[in-house]
């Protein structure tokens, strides 16, 4: 991330190159976690771990009974982040605008991301913002990646380590797995999965100490 920023900052490098000693002062760049605090609107029943990271300038809205695990990153640098009710955002996930090739360009308009109700984003998954929408009851598996502007329907499953390319629309009840393969989920278990999600959240709420005040 910093490589791009430094390339931008160091534009007058020709003038600086004569004094080689100043070139060492790269440590003054603030650490990656330090960023602007976004305006948040949490429901009162949100469970958000203290170790979660929220950065950016656009608003972040989180619906009721949603659980955010420690070390989840929500970056609203380029657009708002809306998370529905009873979602589970696991650790090490990244949701939001990550910048283009390490550079943060804020000229384009819509960098928003919307997660519907009952969405699960599993460990280490990345959801890139840019009008990205994830429908109700969808599971984004471990380490998978949702490209910018992708629109995922309701009750989909994105299998672990798979990728949804940018701008793609995926219909309801689809399973994305393996090397870009898709099939339709005909089990019809959406209702019971939502019930299971609600139970899982009640369980997680007793285990993850919540500290919404830190982000407000």
């Amino acid at each position: 991330m910093f490589a791009g920023e430094q390339a931008e900052l160091g534009k007058p490098s020709d003038t600086m190159s004569s004094s080689a000693t100043t070139a060492k002062r790269t440590s003054t760049v603030p650490p990656a976690s330090a960023g602007p605090k976004p305006p948040v609107s949490f429901s009162s029943s949100v469970t958000i771990a203290e170790l979660a990271v929220l950065t950016g300038t656009y608003p972040v809205a989180i619906g009721s009974e949603t659980v955010i695990h420690p070390r989840a990153r929500l970056e609203s640098l380029g657009g708002s982040i809306t998370i529905g009710r009873r979602c589970i955002i696991h650790e090490r996930t990244k949701i939001g605008y990550m910048g283009t090739e390490g550079k943060v360009v804020l000229d384009e308009d819509d960098r928003a991301v919307v997660l519907g109700d009952y969405v699960t984003v599993e460990v280490g998954a990345v959801v890139e913002a840019s009008g990205t929408i994830i429908g109700e009851g969808t599971v984004v598996g471990v380490g998978s990646r949702v490209g910018r502007g992708a629109v995922i329907g309701k009750y989909c499953t994105i299998a672990p380590q798979s990728e949804v390319p940018a701008g793609v629309t995926i219909p309801d009840h689809t399973v994305v797995y393996g090397e870009n393969k898709q099939r339709t989920d005909r089990r019809g278990v959406a209702a019971s999965m939502m019930k299971a999600q609600a139970q899982q959240i009640t369980n997680l709420r007793t285990k993850i100490p919540s500290n919404p005040a830190k982000f407000q």
Binding site: E91, V123, G124, A196, Q199, T202, N203, K207
Partner: peptide, 16 residues
């Protein structure tokens, strides 16, 4: 790497 206990339903309740 990341190690986390598995969660499952046991006797109708979610537990890790």
């Amino acid at each position: 790497c990341c190690l986390r206990p598995p969660g499952r339903f046991y006797k109708g309740h979610f537990t890790h």
